[in-house]
Each structure stands twice: as structure tokens, then as C-alpha cells.
Write a protein that binds this DNA or RNA. Structure first.
Lengths: 225, 225
DNA sequence: CCTACCGATCGGTAGG
DNA sequence: CCTACCGATCGGTAGG
């Protein structure tokens, strides 16, 4: 992840006398944070230098100087989205003890993250992976890697839950795939004005996480909750 | 669905003497079919009159005459995508007997439909619902309605399977939601060059459709298949 | 269906 | 020779 920001700060150890480097880093952060909001709703192709300039009261050429090309702007936006996800989902989710409790906490924080007002367009990856899955390149690769890391986190906690005998013996990778799938489906349903998929996610997760003796009942009937 | 095609054919009951209406309808179909291909890979916003004109050796203004506005082109493309899905998934799937066999057949045909070369970008709705879920309007409404109809078809067949005692007593709406979710997740994974999610879909569906006595084992362990 | 345009905006770059 | 901007404009293309 050698972003151009790293290059900016590494070619001179000392801050320039008038604070230009500091101001540059601050501008970069404010641009990428806004870009994450735009891209969550309208996709990474909805980004443009001109639009960001208008919304942030900067000049278009100034933003272009910070990122050089649109692809590098998109990559920086993807990286910033990862930080947003880290703060909103991973860090708070990891306050729960490893295993089933952490899976539940991660799912809860994910559902909150997908709802407004954190990101106006819901989940950043739901919106952009579908856009970029047919466009090979570094942006697609970065998005795919982040998604894979998220699914791997879920799988690891599910594996821990199995090893701790909190839940029945299931395939952690398969269960993580299912949880990620229904979360993304719920995110789209939320965008379409149908909140009914959120309790469906809960029921799927409850079914997967139910202790061995009661798992059949929890996932089977519609009136369990 | 009063499309502009209906308006074109209703303002004169008789075919014009030189066959212009016939040729217009043929052109419309060729344009929308190509538009479905483009939109499956690059989204309905990747459509443009100019690009379609280049690819089909027509003039940009000629295509604009057929559809008037870009939104009407998008709506006609969504409608055409529905016909593609009908031919590729629903009609062949419905040749299987109602219930569990039909669910399996629909899933099989869906997975084949999501793979190339039918549509270069995979599932039309996976790509476009994520794009349009934050853009209210008739295009979003049409996409959402089609998706809901597909999930309702799955739910109805699952309900039939329960009533025929082919499968355990589950909530058909919840199971249909899960199946649609993992299908869309598999479609994206296929686009990203990872075919491993297809057998995961099969295992999820097998777990949901397993007969009552064996359902626990089928969905539980990773080495069942 | 065609040529010929419009106001605007795209990503990117010029000199100051 | 560097940066972070500015106003202006490059060649192309968008929907209409």
C-alpha cells in the first residue's frame, strides 16, 4: 500500500517551514473522506475532480495535484473506505470476546454501518464491487482484497466459536460466505426502502450460531423470534 | 408497462406502406439486446446513445429517435433483460416439477446464466441494483420489482416443497432470501475470477432442501460433499 | 434514420 | 526544484 501520501511524507523528513505538507495531508484526508460518501451512493465512477472541488470549495486543479489521476483518486478512496469500515465495524466488533459473541457484534455493527447516516449510500463494497467486478485493474483488486479480508475475519471467529464448542460443527468458510451474502442483500433492501431484510439477517445468523442442541429449531420456523 | 414502443405501434393500426414500423421494431430490439450486454458489465449508466450507435453502426440521433431519452432507453433495457432472464432461467427452470426439484433447476439455470458467455458482465440485477439502489426513479422501481418477483418465485416453490413434505419445515421467504443472497454473492465472485463460491451455493441450497431426517448433517459439516 | 449543432462536463495539464 | 493551489483551457464525449 505505497500510496502517494507516503511518498509525499518520505521525501523530506522535516515539515516545510510554512506547513504546506501538513496542509496537503489534511486536504487529502478531507477529499478522500468526502469521496467515500459519494462513492458509497453513486459508485467510484460517480467521482469526479470537478464535483469534489465544488463540494469542498477547492479548485479542481488543486485536487488533481493531490492525486494526479482519477485512478489514484479511486485507490485513495478505497483505502479511506477501509479506515471507515475499521472504525465503524471491526474495532467496535472486536471489543466482544472472540467467537460467537464477536460474530454477533460484527454483524450488529455492520448493519448499523450500512444504515444512514454514516454513509449516504450504504455499504461501500456492496455498491462498488458490483460496479468493478468486470473492470480489471488495481481498483478492482483492492476492493476484492478488502472483501476477502472481511470474510476471512468472520470465518476466523466462526472457527473459534466451533473450537470453543459455542456453536455446532459447521464449515466456517461456508458460514462466513453466507453471512456476507445476506448482509449485502440486506444493504440493498435497505436502500430500496424495505427494512424487513434486517430481521432476516438476524435469523440466519442466529441459526448459524445457535448452540448444537437447539440449532434446528432456531433456523427452522418463522415464528422463533 | 406503457413503453414508447407501445406508443409507436398504437398511433397507427396499419403498418406503414414502406415497412418503417417493422424496421423500427427490429432496430429497437437489436439496440436493447446490445444494451443489456453493456449494462450487465458496466451498468445502466455505462450506456450511451453514442456508444450504441458506434457498436451497431447506427447514428446517435437515430437511436435517440427510437427511445427519446436516456431514461426510456434504460427502462427498455431493463425490460429486455427481463426477457433474457425469462428465457435463460425461468422457462427452463419451470420444466422441472413444482417444489424442491424446481428450486434446484432454477438455481442451476441461474448459475449458468450468471456465467459467460450469455451476458458478458454476469447477472444484470446484481450489477444494476447496487448501482440504482440510491437513485430513486422508474428505473430503480422496475429493477426492484423484477428482483422481488424472482424471490417470490423461489419462495413459492419452497412453500410447495414444504407442503409436499419434500423438505423440512422452513420459512419459504427466509430461505428464498438466503438463496438469492448467495447467488448474487457467487455472481460477483465469478466476476472476480474465483469460482469457488459456486459449490458453496450448492451446499447452501442442499442444506435448505435436504429432507427432514438428514437436513442437519447436510448443512453442518464441510466434508459432506 | 441523417448531419449538425447546443450547454455542460469529463480527466488532465498549461503557465503564473 | 519542490508543494499546493489558481483561472483557463486542452481534446473528447455526454444527453438532447
Amino acid at each position: 500500500m505505497d500510496s502517494s501520501a507516503a511518498a509525499h511524507t518520505s521525501d523530506g523528513d522535516a515539515e516545510s517551514p510554512d506547513g504546506r505538507l501538513r496542509r496537503g495531508a489534511r486536504s487529502r484526508k478531507s477529499v478522500t473522506r468526502r469521496a467515500v460518501d459519494i462513492a458509497s451512493a453513486e459508485g467510484l465512477y460517480g467521482l469526479s475532480f470537478g464535483r469534489l472541488a465544488d463540494e469542498l470549495d477547492l479548485s479542481k486543479a488543486g485536487i488533481q495535484t493531490l492525486f494526479r489521476t482519477k485512478e489514484q483518486l479511486q485507490l485513495a478512496t478505497v483505502e479511506e473506505a477501509g479506515l471507515v469500515f475499521l472504525d465503524a465495524v471491526l474495532r467496535p466488533g472486536f471489543e466482544a470476546p472472540a467467537g460467537a459473541a464477536r460474530v454477533r457484534s460484527l454483524v450488529e455493527h455492520w448493519l448499523a454501518y450500512a444504515a444512514e447516516p454514516l454513509l449516504p449510500g450504504g455499504c461501500f463494497w456492496t455498491a462498488n464491487l458490483a460496479d468493478f467486478d468486470s473492470r480489471p485493474g488495481p481498483v478492482r483488486d483492492a476492493l476484492a482484497r478488502q472483501r476477502q479480508e472481511w470474510v476471512a475475519v468472520l470465518a476466523r471467529e466462526l472457527r473459534t466459536a466451533v473450537e470453543q464448542h459455542e456453536i455446532a460443527d459447521l464449515d466456517p468458510d461456508l458460514a462466513a460466505f453466507q453471512i456476507d451474502a445476506v448482509l449485502n442483500a440486506a444493504n440493498i433492501s435497505l436502500r430500496l426502502g424495505n427494512p424487513g431484510s434486517v430481521p432476516m439477517v438476524q435469523r440466519v445468523v442466529d441459526g448459524l450460531l445457535a448452540p448444537p442442541a437447539t440449532r434446528r429449531r432456531a433456523q427452522r420456523t418463522s415464528k422463533t423470534r
